[in-house]
Design a protein around this nucleic acid. Sequence first.
DNA 1: ACCAATTGTAGTAACTTAACTACAAAAGCT
DNA 2: AGCTTTTGTAGTTAAGTTACTACAATTGGT
Lengths: 210, 210
Amino acid sequence: MRILIADDHGLIREGLKKILLESLPFAEIHDVSDSAELFKKSIKEPWDIIISDISMPGYSGIEILKQIKTHVPNTPVLMLSMHSPEQYAVRAIKAGASGYLTKESAPYELVTAVQQILAGRKYITNRVAEVLASSLETDSSKLPHENLSDREFEVLKKLVEGKSVSEISEMLSLNINTISTYRARILDKMGLRSNADLIRYAIEHKISDL
Amino acid sequence: MRILIADDHGLIREGLKKILLESLPFAEIHDVSDSAELFKKSIKEPWDIIISDISMPGYSGIEILKQIKTHVPNTPVLMLSMHSPEQYAVRAIKAGASGYLTKESAPYELVTAVQQILAGRKYITNRVAEVLASSLETDSSKLPHENLSDREFEVLKKLVEGKSVSEISEMLSLNINTISTYRARILDKMGLRSNADLIRYAIEHKISDL
DNA sequence: ACCAATTGTAGTAACTTAACTACAAAAGCT
DNA sequence: AGCTTTTGTAGTTAAGTTACTACAATTGGT
């Protein structure tokens, strides 16, 4: 049983490991602390399951998830997040995740999720199922930011954190103009005019976790 | 040895517990998941150390820390945070914390910190020490924005409203560079780095009247 | 299966902002 | 009164951002 854990917080990695080892004492658990490493390791070696935080420095979790899924589509991935399900669950599941848990979850949920996924199933909590279901309904009832594409959303978050266009372009290894275009599309889709508006919106809708 | 852990994320609480138990196998570890509970439990029962996340729903960690410190001043508190030290370290230490760690920290740091604090000392990392030292240079009895001049404050408000440097320069019939200089001075005095920080600060301190 | 819309990406040119630097006037301290 | 710091103000140059345009790849709809 080979498990790969990805999270940028040392304490959290260690904690997850210990929780898992309690119920899967013979598991061979490896861990990585950033998305680049996660990507490399996930396609280079075989894993029974990958457990990854969704928000790590560098490439976003969703982005890496997609990458992993194109390279090793049969390796199941369980995404963990600090955020409330609405923010990411749908995106994660659509990108091929086998499950989605928030860190609020009780430890036994982690264990259950992992076991269920190892058994070839998906682990979708009620909360996520709900969100998923309602995401299929009319999108007229959607909040403006729910119409953003994954990339746009990713850029939105970074803008809200105060990152500049060029910083973001560097983080994502994209051209500055590309980020500028995303920003323009975000503003357009959300009917806003400035980064300040974006930040207010984000605070009001609890998009950022800062 | 009685340890109280406070964190709103179940997985994290559990992880911390397991990490601590490894080096302190006889510790009696309790945990709570929100600030109200933390407060109640921290003054009702005796603890050798309290380990608390700084950002929990409800009252902020700092607020609770202060409360705890007025009621049971001798119980040491170690604060944990997801955020970079600059944001909170100084405030936490001033409010009476015995130490400040980010969740990036390696597990052994947690253990070291706890042991050092249990031994009656404080645990201050280099990063935090640095920030702490430089915080003594400015007049810290005042809120950062109270050191702004009138013009600076005027510009601050407009920046927070989302006005661009050039718009402001036009409104005030001043050179663009002048506004740029004000902005730089504001950021400097307030120890912030971006307009995004400014907006967050403003919202938090209810500076703007929007 | 076909066409339209959206998404991910970047180039070029125009425009805006940041970083320094500077300096006189006002305020603050001794 | 004299020295120091802060404030109000801009110039120059370098760096960064926006606006517009474009186009292939995907997705979505019928």
